[in-house]
């Protein structure tokens, strides 16, 4: 049995604070929140190692060059912010298969990993197509 984790904050409070954070960011630096463009930059960075010519000629990687910018750092920050919050509130859990997935589809980490990988691929293709 897992150790009972402390209850989180109200989603209205945390969501409202996230809204204030966005307003401050727009006011101070003109930056809105986003994440999906960073995945394009990461893909370009990796591809550049193997096929630099292809990346250099790509229309899309010219528009979204493989570089570290505000949003890239924002996404990196999200990882550390979540890690700090989880580690300081006894809610960090190493978990390979989520609860509700396990109940429905079983404990296989490979199965879950493959579906998460495929889902991520489709979701990101769609997100970029929708320009979001």
């Amino acid at each position: 049995m897992e150790e009972q984790e402390p209850k989180g904050w109200s989603p209205y409070l945390a969501g409202g604070l996230a809204g204030l954070l966005l307003v401050c960011s727009v006011f101070l630096s003109g930056n809105y929140f986003g994440a999906s463009t960073t995945f394009v930059r990461v893909a370009g960075t990796i591809e550049k190692v193997f096929v630099p010519d292809r990346v250099a000629q790509s229309e899309y990687f010219t528009r979204f060059a493989p570089a570290i910018d505000w949003q890239w750092m924002f996404v990196a920050g999200v990882f550390f912010g979540s890690l700090i919050s989880a580690a300081t509130s006894r809610s960090f859990r190493l978990q390979t298969v989520p609860h509700t997935w396990r109940e429905r589809f079983g404990p296989s980490a490979t199965k879950r990993g493959l579906v998460a990988y495929a889902g991520g691929t489709i979701a990101m293709f769609g997100a970029r197509l929708a320009d979001g």
Binding site: F33, A35, S36, T38, F39, V40, V42, A43, G44, I46, E47, S58, Y60, F61, V75, V78, F79, F80, G81, S82, L83, S85, A86, S91, F92, R93, L94, Q95, T96, V97, P98, W101, A109, R112, G113, L114, A116, Y117, A118, G119, G120, T121, I122, A123, M124, F125, A127, R128, L129
Partner: peptide, 30 residues
């Protein structure tokens, strides 16, 4: 996209596979 990164931060390792899928999806879209 952003929650996959955050979920990995709180220890959900399946989110890493999802993250890699998203990088693949971004490359395919390019």
């Amino acid at each position: 996209p952003a929650t996959s990164v955050a979920a990995f931060g709180e220890g959900r390792t399946d989110a890493l596979w999802g993250f890699l899928g998203m990088v693949t999806g971004a490359g395919l879209y390019a």
